[in-house]
Amino acid sequence: MLNRAKLRNYALPLALLAALAVSLLFVMTALAQDDMPTDDEVNKIAKDLYCPVCESTPLDVCPTEACRQWRELIRQQLAEGKSEEEIKQYFVTYYGARVLSEPPNRLASYLVPALAFLAGAFLLFRGFRMWLKPLAVESAVPTEDAEAFPQDEYIRRMEEELKKRK
């Protein structure tokens, strides 16, 4: 904005038509540079959006015409000063929740696999308790020589290999 005002100050005193035209052109390109969001800003938002026309392809890499238009829409809304959240919200109202990269209902989407995993873990630990219980009663011998066990195993393995070689 500052840039624009400055240029106007310079441009006005100039009477020459050609100079005016040149500076006007300059003003316009400066305008474009100042206000148009960059591709990177657009892609940052587009990365998390999915267009229904090309399912499972994020918007920033989708080559279809529909997706190109969507990216332009993001650019336009960024230029209007909308935030990332507002833009995403706009897309959700217009095109439905499927434009988001995750289901809007976070709880449902994470809860089921989490519960399944916990159930599996529970079964496993219950199993361990069951398997280990009789052992604790039976004897304490294994725990005693457990420390020596890996070493023993090593020597035994080596011996076995020696045997095999012969």
Binding site: Y50, R98, L100, S101, E102, P103, P104, S109, Y110, V112
Partner: peptide
């Protein structure tokens, strides 16, 4: 779950959803 969640969501709530990389 990620693969069939969109199916379940669409069948039971009528809402199409995407389960993408962030999930």
């Amino acid at each position: 779950w990620g693969v069939i969640y969109p199916l379940i969501s669409e069948l039971f709530t009528g809402q199409k959803v995407t389960v993408g990389p962030p999930f």
